[in-house]
Design a protein around this nucleic acid. Sequence first.
DNA 1: ACCTGAACACCGTTCAAGT
DNA 2: ACCTGAACACCGTTCAAGT
Lengths: 191, 191
Amino acid sequence: MPRGPGQRAGLTRAAVLDTAHALLAEEGLDALTMRALARRLGVAPNALYSHVPGKTELVDALLDDRLSLVEAPDPAAADPVAALAALMTSSYEVLLARADLLPLYLARQGSRGPNAVRLGIATDALLARLGLAAEAIPSARRALIVHAIGCAAFAGGDGPVPAEMARADFTRSLRWLLDGIAAQPAKSAPP
Amino acid sequence: MPRGPGQRAGLTRAAVLDTAHALLAEEGLDALTMRALARRLGVAPNALYSHVPGKTELVDALLDDRLSLVEAPDPAAADPVAALAALMTSSYEVLLARADLLPLYLARQGSRGPNAVRLGIATDALLARLGLAAEAIPSARRALIVHAIGCAAFAGGDGPVPAEMARADFTRSLRWLLDGIAAQPAKSAPP
DNA sequence: ACCTGAACACCGTTCAAGT
DNA sequence: ACCTGAACACCGTTCAAGT
């Protein structure tokens, strides 16, 4: 029996996001519409707006949720370059499973949800351990992020390049970037 | 006076693409709809389908058109690394003006229109001049392309990073990639 | 072959009302 | 506060018809 106006469906923001994740994973970005999402939840389309500001914010939340699966590296890791490589590789893997979303993410310059901020801070800490000057750190961070997201968006596409090859490309060019970053002029060392 | 059925509007594929370019440049990707495009051309929405297979193909054509502005480098250039840097920088600049389209392009792994193919061949020729093994050339090409498109999509976004800074990031990390590519194990030199 | 009219099957979002 | 019904202002695309 359908609900009338005023009767609650027990919807929560978490339930909306969970179902959105499932819909995205199962049917792709094109199928992720507010109306299809509402259908899956058994509510009227506009009921979603009590728990989510709009579709843009929902998509942002989905991507940042995804980044919660990446664990921040130990800032005191013995080998900061290896720790950066592991962090970027882990981000790449996790983002690959939601490659549909990445184009939008790139265009918004990685609009910063809490998890993106958390990983950004961890990245900066490792870059500082390499001896980078403070002004050089944001640039290096952006280069690594654009690379990881760009490669994941590319690999997740439906083009002719197989996933394994795209992954090998990612790893190799990541090394080139890290080599370049590590070879940058260091800030003056303490005496 | 409006046209009745059967009366021609003098539409051509070129006119459709030109108007689509103008619409995209003036009002952005969201405003580029088949209906808005038809409105601008003074025809019914479905009239477009006599000249263009659909919206996906139209967008692909718009991006490849854009690449026609990039001139292929001299394959016999004195400094192949400098020629590669110039080619990628020129592509970056040209794509920046249509940054809206890049996310879709990345996801389709740079779906290859005639101009994309032309520039890809030019890139491969320069990479071969560096002494790269044949198997290493497509990987190096993809790394450069993902980098250029990824950086342009990022820079074109409406985030907090100013365009000049994004451009400086692009140039610096491009150098790192080229350094890494050029330092790869060369194929056996002729005796 | 090229174009129109009408329609189909959708969108995201807002507004007024009900409990 | 949370939800429904109804509506608004759109989409891309197809189909039948007209010249």
